[in-house]
Nucleic acid binder design. Structure first.
Length: 728
DNA sequence: CTGGTTTTCA
């Protein structure tokens, strides 16, 4: 900009006066757009020196610039130089007041004007529309004596912006009837109305009109046509429009880029992006958003870095997008940098930005900083509250979550879903049902995700009654079994012991993914239908394209273990890597060790543990110990126990088992040694837990004393019952 | 000279 100014100062003497003024004018407009106050003032001084400041064209640009900068003293100075009433100057003043949101001042100026032109009217109409005052705007529209294309378009697009597509289109019809010719701007606006209403037929007839009036070559019209085709999923037509254009701008390229993304071809979209003749911050945002959406957060953040390096200013949406990408990458360091930048340019107050920031800190497990950002949001909306709520939930701070939830000004089904999901995630199942019931009572409709969460809670507490109830509610809501809901139902029925219903749901699912198969295979195995489980696995291999994953193979091993098909299980285990390409994890070894130990093949089990390429799970050793107990093999038990002792794993189950084995062998000294060891390591026997349901509330009881608020009374009653039983 | 339109997004 500085160089442009210099070039102008050392001006070309051959430049004539008019083009000189024009160049000054466009420079001033440029300064005004980019907020370059110093440069603008400097040019003003220069013009004063040259004595051409009162030239009307230049003066108007100067006035607009000073109004833009809100330098009212200078602006007033220029107004004075026009000596009284000037229509264009008054128009500029009205426009400035509209920009500043002083609508009453703008209207006062409008009313006081001795004469008005079509621009005056149009400005007021579009100004009122801009602030959502549709009724008043339409009133002025009807009063307007100069209904030209621009004011028609202003009225139409104003209605469209406020979701009144139908009224907008009706106004468009009136425009056609009035005899005024619509132009390219009108058509672009009307096409976006067709996009809004999703009316393909109407769009096509507008297209006919466009062709008839000869606007089909206009860039803006074609751009909106491409978007129209995109929304109607007419990808071929979109490409035809694009290919036919003889001039394309950055908007056209960005629009066609999105066509390929929608067609699921991100690679082709990227190729277009790389080959675009020109890019702007919106095209950058678009491609970054698409990478982020498709889960390639690394590429998204790489592109963001390139975008900034190439000097593009990210838009607000781009910032919030990249923040959520960094949140997924849990890249707190980069996130903090961007946070600092956001503060510097002063957009931290934006609800989308601040909610993304809350999410970023929480996903990086820094709920404290998340809370600080949350507290700083002035106009919190549901999304901001939900981000903070979700943050507490994902970090298991359920007390904070509940407190926040109880104090939210408004809740939507996302909020309910978040807190319910949090309780499920952190195994507080009694709370899940409690909150879910309140949710239903409040009249909020659960989403599919919330239903899935609650179903998994039912599965975990094996509450068939509740599960059936939820199933009924799902049907009532009219949700059909999609993959997620169907899988959750299958799992719930299987875990609650109703394997028949489980199979029924599974059979009716229109689509199954690897989780669905896993759940069913595991469900059958755990219900003692191990043979059926294995044959279902066979069916899956034959009939679907789903590849067995780690979890599913675990279920298969489990099935073999539970129907005593030890050799079959060993065969599967051997094939895991070679046939299915899944490297056995600790859990798989544990399962096989368990299988061998249960059938008394203790030496093989021990050998398998010794052959493991990594540390065995404590559970594997525990399983072997358990086998030793059953088959009375103290020799292996001794060795295994030693290994378990060496294992630094904080797993108390193994120790408990160990002490039980010693106890059953009557080796009380060893028992007390193990207990001592546990105390030294700070391990506690994880308490058993039981619960009863009374009127939709689950009451939990833990094996440690005194954890229940009414344990004293409960024990009193137990004692009473006991003494009555003795009396019998 | 001053006014109306199109592309990304939560």
């Amino acid at each position: 900009m500085k160089t442009a100014l210099k070039a102008l100062f050392s001006t070309n003497p051959t430049l004539n006066f008019n083009s000189y003024c024009k160049r000054c004018g466009s420079l001033l407009k440029n300064f005004s757009d980019k907020g370059l106050v110093t440069e603008g003032t400097a040019l003003h001084c220069h013009l004063l020196k040259q004595g051409i400041f009162s030239e009307k064209f230049v003066a108007i640009k100067l006035l607009i610039m000073y109004l833009d900068f809100r330098q009212l003293a200078e602006a007033n100075q220029i107004v004075k130089e026009f000596n009284g009433f000037n229509l264009v100057v008054q128009n500029c003043l009205i426009n400035a007041n509209i920009q500043w949101g002083s609508l009453s001042e703008a209207r006062k100026l409008f009313e006081e004007m001795p004469e008005r032109n079509e621009v005056t009217w149009t400005m007021l109409i579009s100004g009122l529309m801009k602030y959502g005052r549709v009724q008043e705007s339409m009133w002025y529209f009807e009063m307007n004596p100069f209904k030209n294309v621009v004011s028609w378009t202003a009225g139409i697009s104003g209605l469209l912006k406020h979701g009144l597509s139908f009224h907008g289109l009706k106004l468009f019809i009136r425009l056609l009837e009035s005899g005024v010719k619509p132009n390219q701007v009108t058509f672009t606006a009307v096409i976006s109305a067709c996009i809004e209403t999703g009316d393909f037929e109407l769009g096509m007839s507008v297209l006919g009109l466009i062709v008839k009036t000869g606007f089909e070559a206009n860039v803006s019209v074609c751009n909106s046509l491409i978007t129209f085709c995109l929304r109607m999923r007419e990808f071929d037509m979109a490409r035809r429009v694009f290919n036919r254009m003889d001039t394309r701008d950055v908007v056209s390229w960005t629009a066609i880029l999105d066509i390929y993304v929608e067609m699921g071809n991100l690679g082709e979209a990227r190729r277009i992006f790389d080959e675009m003749p020109e890019r702007n911050e919106i095209s950058w945002s678009a491609i970054i958003a698409r990478y982020s959406q498709s889960g390639d957060h690394l590429e998204a953040s790489k592109l963001f870095r390139r975008m900034v390096q190439e000097g593009f200013k990210p838009t607000i949406s781009c910032f919030s997008r990249i923040l959520s990408t960094l949140a997924s990458l849990e890249n707190l360091r980069a996130g903090r940098n961007i946070h600092a930048h956001i503060k510097k340019i002063g957009i931290q107050g934006d609800v989308f930005i601040s909610s993304s920031l809350v999410d970023l800190y929480c996903k990086c497990r820094d709920t404290e900083n998340g809370r600080l950002v949350f507290n700083s949001i002035e106009n919190k909306n549901v999304v901001s509250w939900n981000s903070m709520l979700g943050g507490y939930c994902m970090n298991g701070q359920m007390d904070e979550a509940k407190y926040l939830f109880d104090n939210m000004p408004t809740r939507n089904n996302v909020s309910w879903g978040a807190i319910i999901g949090g309780y499920v995630e952190h195994k507080q199942y009694d709370k899940v049902f409690e909150v879910f019931n309140v949710m239903l009572l409040s009249g909020e409709s659960p989403t599919k995700q919330t239903f899935s969460s609650v179903l998994s809670a039912c599965a975990s507490v094996a509450s068939l009654e509740k599960g059936r109830d939820i199933h009924g509610k799902i049907l009532k809501q009219g949700f059909h079994y999609d993959v997620y809901l169907g899988t959750a139902l299958t799992d719930m029925y299987a875990k609650s012991g109703d394997i028949e219903s489980s199979k029924q749901v599974f059979d009716r699912m229109p689509e199954r993914n690897e989780f669905s198969w896993t759940v069913m295979i595991q469900g059958l195995a755990e219900s003692g239908l191990a043979k059926e489980s294995l044959s279902l696995f066979g069916e899956m291999e034959r009939s679907s394209s789903v590849a067995p994953n780690e979890l599913m193979l675990l279920a298969v091993l489990f099935a073999c273990s539970h129907c005593g098909l030890v050799d079959k299980g060993l065969e599967f285990f051997g094939e895991m890597e070679s046939v299915y390409g899944v490297r056995p994890k600790g859990r798989h070894y544990t399962c096989v060790v368990d299988m061998l130990s249960r059938s008394g093949r203790l030496y093989e089990a021990e050998e398998l543990i010794n052959s493991m390429p990594f540390q065995p799970e404590a559970n594997a050793l525990a399983a072997l110990l358990s086998g030793c107990k059953t088959y009375k093999n103290e020799e292996i038990a001794e060795r295994t126990a030693r290994k378990l002792g060496e294992l630094a794993e904080r797993n108390s189950a193994g120790f408990v088992l160990l002490s039980n084995i010693y106890a059953s062998a009557g080796r009380w000294v060893d028992v007390s040694n193990v207990r001592k060891l546990m105390r030294e390591k700070g391990l506690k026997k994880s308490g058993g837990c039981s619960w009863v349901e009374v009127r939709n509330h689950a009451y939990s009881f833990y094996s440690e004393d005194g954890t229940h608020s009414k344990s004293a009374e409960i024990y009193d009653i137990l004692e009473l019952l006991q003494s009555e039983m003795m009396a019998l």
